[in-house]
Write a protein that binds this DNA or RNA. Structure first.
Lengths: 202, 202, 202, 202
DNA sequence: CTGTAAGCGAGACGGTACGTCGAGTCTTCCG
DNA sequence: CGGAAGACTCGACGTACCGTCTCGCTTACAG
């Protein structure tokens, strides 16, 4: 489990965990991720780079994966982006995808994303956290937009919205993971929505 | 590169590599994969289990990942399944997906599949092999069916077939990787193909 | 340096150090020494056992070794034993050795003694304290008895008394350290003095 | 247990342990012992210095102590010294002690000796090996000389030879361990043997 | 039918990372 | 200021795995 100091507000006894130390670790991790592959970033290296004892890292995160997840969510995908529903659900979704893609074009984004997917395959705990948090947060956003579309009558109400969402994210993931370098650009967002459009709107 | 003994017909001098040894290694790998996570299956363990020297393994495969790929493709997804075009492309695709799903419900399939995806993130060589072989073989099959649909006038020719294929596989991957346990069953195959309805002429 | 609370009479400002705390630490140390080897007794464990902060220990002793030395000298070899000179120096020495041996048969004595010898090898500060205090106090007692023997004409005056003392303690140490379990009993005291007797008395 | 490659002549399977590697480890240990205290010589440092994997050290010795014992006995006290009995037991013993002292004045000897004594206090296995080997080998030599004296009628047969030996080694140990820097020189050898005068017949 | 190149089991090898532990110091809050 | 709690740095521990190397031995084709 991630036991980040900032989350556990109740512990009061003893010396509190230092936020500066947290920052040093996260920062060192980012620096190392820039210059090395994820698998080559070891806890030892992070500790050395951050001038921190290894124990200090293990006190906060129980694995490299947990640390990575926090680094990714807080630094690379640092804010949830969103769109205000305009009344045109499909257009909103296309906008949202475009915003996602901006983040995913961050130089560390795809390296980090792949690392998360890989870790998720190895570590059941991490998988749970990754999918129920990171992934679901984003799924939910899209689903809400679709739902709004249903409510204004733009989107058919007899469809599985979940499937539509899976399709969208599946398409993105496939591109991300295959490493083929196919770009996540505005055109792709348009295509994705385009292909779903006839399915959704009548 | 993998240089399996059976493929290299030109080497003649010296003692030939034993097929029985090959088999022992692959078999040991499968046995270990059943009882342990992929990351816990080490070459040392495989060698011990197969009563084989480590060198003997590295003579045949250049990494754990290569060995895995072969084990997966030859044992778990052991034959390419296919369908003969019936004239109804979407129905054919649905059939094909159902056949894929049969293989993917093999007890080692999803564990092995995840392992391959994870390895692909770490190892560029493996990624290349994995996507241009395993993945593309299957993509190609679906694409061909779609193309056949175009040729008989069932499927529209003004849309990107590649995108359609990505959508299908993306949906499947997403389900496989998320470990949510959402089943890859016939209903899902039907749903997926449903997405392609808009691709039909008229 | 050991700065036991009882010695520092001058510090007056702030909350005074608690004697009960001192006691708790020493007691916990003894308890742990009973059940574990010296090397397995860590300051962390002592602090936990005594329900005391580590700093509280380090405020009183500057190292594990210092704490050990005090525990040993104050609890195991808790009072200096002595004999009143009877006029027969050799008999007095034999008596003194017997009294030493009573202490050394304390269940923690040889474990503690070995620990001190070991620490003395590692830590120059401790070595100084150990030899100039614990060891020399006892050497001095024997030497005084010998000197008394010289003065009453029982012991030859042309001998190195230091050598005689070294021999006595050397014999004892050798037995203690070798862990052979050779007993430190009255018979051994008699033997030791017996072997020195012809050397000393004529 | 020490499982030095040179001793186990029977293992034939697999790649044999390299003598050069052994040598590199021992040499590195000696080098480090020169510049650092024993406690500061870690297996990590030895491995780094010897350009050897840690496992390679642990394959041969089960602890730092075992390695030390071998280094000490094979390099510092590298050959057992001895004397041929001349008929005068005490003179022979004095000669033998002088020879011991030559070895003990080796720059690493007392550092190494103390380290062995300290380790012996911590580790029962090591203690057993140390005393029944290193220590006893030397005790035995002295005892034999005394026994020879008994046989030629020079030494009294009604006294405990073991005690005499303990006395001699006790005196030496005490001087070695106390770190007082009292020299182990020829004069000391003469003094020690002087103690044994009462053992002479008549 | 014999030499020799390669395969083979076994296990040593240099490296690197792991996660834990201990020492001694520092920092909080509470009395 | 004392004290309990516990964070902090540093660095050692012993294990595991990777991919390579090196033994003695076996196998089967080539001359």
């Amino acid at each position: 489990m991630v036991e980040s100091s900032n989350t556990s507000a109740t512990r009061t006894r003893g010396r509190p965990r230092s936020d500066a130390t947290n920052e040093a670790i996260v920062h060192a991790t980012l620096e190392l991720l820039e210059s090395e592959n994820y698998q080559d970033v070891s806890i030892d290296k992070i500790a050395a780079q951050a001038k921190v004892g290894k124990q200090t890292i293990y006190r906060r995160w129980n694995s490299k994966a947990s640390l990575l997840l926090e680094v990714m969510t807080e630094r690379i995908f640092n804010r949830m982006v969103g769109v205000v529903p305009s009344g045109d659900a499909l257009s909103d979704i296309e906008d949202l995808l475009k915003r996602y893609f901006v983040q995913l074009r961050h130089p560390l984004a795809d390296k980090g994303f792949r690392a998360m997917v890989a870790e998720a395959q190895f570590d059941a705990d991490f998988r749970e956290k990754f999918y129920s948090g990171f992934v679901n947060d984003r799924r939910y956003q899209v689903r809400e937009l679709l739902q709004a579309g249903v409510e204004v009558g733009q989107v058919r109400s007899d469809l599985s919205l979940d499937l539509a969402v899976d399709i969208l994210f599946g398409g993105i993931w496939f591109r991300l993971l295959s490493g083929a370098g196919a770009p996540l650009d505005d055109a792709f967002a348009k295509e994705l929505v385009g292909i779903l459009k006839p399915y959704l709107v009548k």
